[in-house]
């Protein structure tokens, strides 16, 4: 009797836990569903090819056009720019923490980097607008008030801690005998870092870079504030641009009428954004697990 009751008790606990799990999973599914349905509705009004390959993004003013490429180039400027800043410095910081820094220095620097990751993104946006942009305009006076470069720099700073801490983990997970093998052959720390540690951790470095890039693509607040809201097909980082995320903000805040292609753009752009970051995350996790099973 008692064992039966225990079984029922146990079973109901499992059910409750399952229900809680399902709630969070279902949120993901609902989001994907809404994005899918509304994007489908959008593509009833606008051909997919016009959307993907069109070079004009003018969803609100007549004549309307729905070419998403300007938003993609805007996003690209942010992603590439921030990667150029964050990838090398992130790897360098991780290498420093791992091979050069004393335990004491490490104890101070690591938490500071983690604080960098915890600053609200709106603060970063404000920082870009009031500090980085004036600084750029000091050197390049033709720079517009809202510009891709400022956004890229600030997003670079934002994703830096992510890259450095993931790379740091990657480096410390290598067997210490590998490094010592390098030192035992008369190598200097720099040679060990650049020619033994980094090559051995390259998969996990790749994974951290991809995860950070996916974060940069999805970053919203800072780029909305810093890079502007002018959807323009350009790769000039000194002009005002608009990223996919910043556009979604614009639609969500504005008084766009519900229904109609202009309103539905929000979902098609969000769907595309979701798809890109989703793919990047899959690649990133694949690299991460591959390296875990690959010995190093």
């Amino acid at each position: 009797m008692t064992t039966d009751r225990l079984k029922i008790y146990d079973y109901s606990i499992a059910l409750v836990l399952l229900a809680i799990t399902l709630i969070s999973v279902s949120v993901t599914i609902v989001i994907m569903g809404i994005l899918g349905i509304e994007s489908y509705n959008f593509f009833q009004l606008v051909p997919v090819t016009d959307f993907l390959f069109g070079t004009q993004w003018e969803p609100f003013l007549e004549p309307k056009s729905f070419g998403v490429l300007p938003l993609i180039t805007g996003t690209l400027i942010i992603v590439i720019g921030s990667s150029i800043i964050a990838i090398p410095s992130g790897i360098v910081i991780a290498a420093y923490l791992n091979e050069y820094a004393s335990k004491k220095t490490r104890k101070i620097i690591k938490p500071l980097l983690e604080i960098l990751a915890g600053i609200p993104t709106v603060v970063y946006g404000y920082f870009a607008l009031t500090f980085i942009t004036p600084l750029i305009r000091n050197f390049l006076p033709d720079t517009q008030v809202f510009n891709g470069l400022s956004g890229a720099i600030v997003v670079g700073i934002m994703i830096l801690p992510m890259i450095s801490s993931l790379c740091d983990d990657a480096f410390s997970s290598l067997p210490s005998s590998l490094k010592q093998g390098g030192y035992a052959l008369g190598a200097m720390p720099f040679e060990v870092v650049s020619q033994v540690i980094i090559p051995a951790a390259k998969n996990r470095i790749g994974a951290s870079v991809i995860l950070a890039m996916s974060r940069a693509i999805g970053e919203t607040m800072a780029v909305t504030l810093a890079a502007g809201a002018t959807a323009k097909l350009t790769l000039n980082p000194l002009e005002s641009i608009q990223t996919m995320t910043a556009f979604i903000v614009q639609v969500s805040l504005g008084d766009t009428q519900q229904g109609g292609a202009a309103y539905l753009t929000c979902f098609s752009v969000a769907g595309l954004l979701f798809l890109i970051t989703f793919l990047l995350n899959i690649v990133g996790h694949k690299l991460m697990t591959q390296s875990k099973h690959g010995g190093f």
Binding site: P175, Q180, P199
Partner: peptide, 30 residues
């Protein structure tokens, strides 16, 4: 000193490089 006094470790620890590059790495960096 370590150029003169080499060491072989408890667990084999070849570098994740080719056999060829494992051999020439030490002389190259030195």
């Amino acid at each position: 000193l370590r150029r003169d006094i080499g060491m072989v470790f408890q667990r084999p620890n070849p570098f994740p490089k080719s056999i060829y590059n494992n051999i020439i790495w030490g002389p190259k960096i030195n």
